[in-house]
Amino acid sequence: MDCGTSTAKYVLFAFNTVVVVVGLLGIVFGALILNSIGVIEVDGHVGFPIQAVLPIMLITLGSIVVFIAFLGCCGAIRESVCMTMCYAVFLLVLLIIQLTIVVLLWTNKDKFNSAMGEVIDKAWDSRSKNPAVFEAIQVSLKCCGKNGVTDYVLSLQTPPASCCEHNDCSNPLNFYGGCRSKFQEFMSFSTDTAKYVGLGLIAVELVGFIFACCLANNVRNYKRRNAY
Score class of each variant (00 low, 15 high):
Y10I: 04
F67C: 15
N221T: 12
S188R: 03
T5H: 04
S188C: 02
I68E: 01
E118P: 00
H45A: 12
L141N: 03
G44M: 01
A227K: 13
L32W: 04
L25Q: 06
G44A: 05
L201F: 13
G44W: 00
T150Y: 12
G23H: 03
V139K: 03
R225V: 10
Q51N: 12
F90Y: 06
F15P: 00
E79F: 01
A123G: 02
L24Y: 03
L12M: 09
L215I: 05
M116V: 15
F90P: 00
C179H: 03
A136L: 01
S36H: 07
D110C: 08
I50V: 13
I68P: 05
E135F: 00
K142H: 15
V65P: 00
T107K: 08
C179F: 03
T84A: 09
L206H: 10
K122Q: 11
V66S: 02
S114Y: 07
V22C: 13
V207L: 10
D43K: 11
G198A: 11
L61T: 13
L32T: 08
C3V: 10
E135K: 09
L199N: 08
L54I: 15
Y228G: 11
V207E: 08
T60H: 02
S6R: 15
L25V: 15
F175G: 11
V53R: 07
Q98N: 05
S188I: 01
L54P: 08
L71H: 06
Q138A: 02
V204M: 11
C169W: 07
D151V: 05
A161L: 12
L99C: 13
G72L: 07
V89A: 13
V18R: 06
F134L: 01
D192Y: 12
W106S: 14
I68A: 11
D192N: 15
G47W: 04
A14C: 12
F15G: 01
N226C: 12
C179T: 02
N16E: 01
N113W: 01
V11D: 02
T84I: 05
N167A: 14
G178D: 04
